[in-house]
Amino acid sequence: MREKHFGLGLFSLLVFIFLLGPLLIISVTSFEPGTVLKFPPEGFSLRWYENIFKTGGFIRTFQISIIVSLLGNLLALILGIPAAYALSRYDFKGKSLLNAIFLSPVLIPGIVLGFTLMKYLIVVYQLPMYLGLLIGHTIIMLPFIIRVIASSLSSFDFAVEEAALSLGAGRVRTFFQVVLPNIRSGILAAVLIAFLESFNNVDISVFMTGPGVSTLPIQMLTYVENYFDPTIAAISVLLMVLTGLLMFFIERIMGGLTYFTKR
């Protein structure tokens, strides 16, 4: 049945304009040649893109953001892959409780988590700021890593694993040579999704800034508080390009974006 939904279509179009319009506006204003953000811009210039590299420590904080997200990702994988495997492969006592604990970082308000991390990791445990930042980001990435890898494992046929065991491979060897290669794409997707989550994070990082330590989003927040020139718009465009690229890879790797609609 071909149904026509003109009203519904129009409504949805307006919603999409609401969702994407601001992002489009920010992109256009980034080419403003003047010193004040305007829409529409009064000309075309790339000076604010150049300004990113000249001022405000954007490059330095970008590097910190990348390092923290990547190292945290690695740490979250080391902790998360065995956990995801255990949680999706076996039944055991206390499974639902452990499952809840591993996924709980998404449930705790980020700002609360950031505050308690600052209070205990930095002040009580006396850890260096860098390490605190790394630990915080690892915590928020863990649920994403576990969820995506577990869903990838749920479609893995464990009979293959048993076949490898019956052919004489040991447990550990089977895991690395049979299980891991088969959930490769799940791991890659998990890494990308977790990366975006960490890279965009404000709630944790905002408590973990100190002399010489800050992330790009925090640097942007600080900059916006003091200046209203188009530099942030220019950075935003670059970040959106990065987001678009990563999303494209996630879509390719997972064969769709259904991960996001499943709950």
């Binding site: 999409f16 601001p22 992002l23 004040v36 829409f39 942007m220 718009a233 970040l239 999303m247 974006l257």
Partner: peptide, 29 residues
């Protein structure tokens, strides 16, 4: 359409809030 809806979700909240400063400000759009 799903991709268009998910894209803003994955975009930095700083970027998204900032875009509304351009639109809603006293000299905004």
């Amino acid at each position: 359409l799903l991709a268009l809806a998910i894209f803003p979700l994955l975009t930095s909240p700083v970027v998204r809030s900032f875009s509304w400063m351009i639109i809603l400000g006293r000299k905004g759009l």
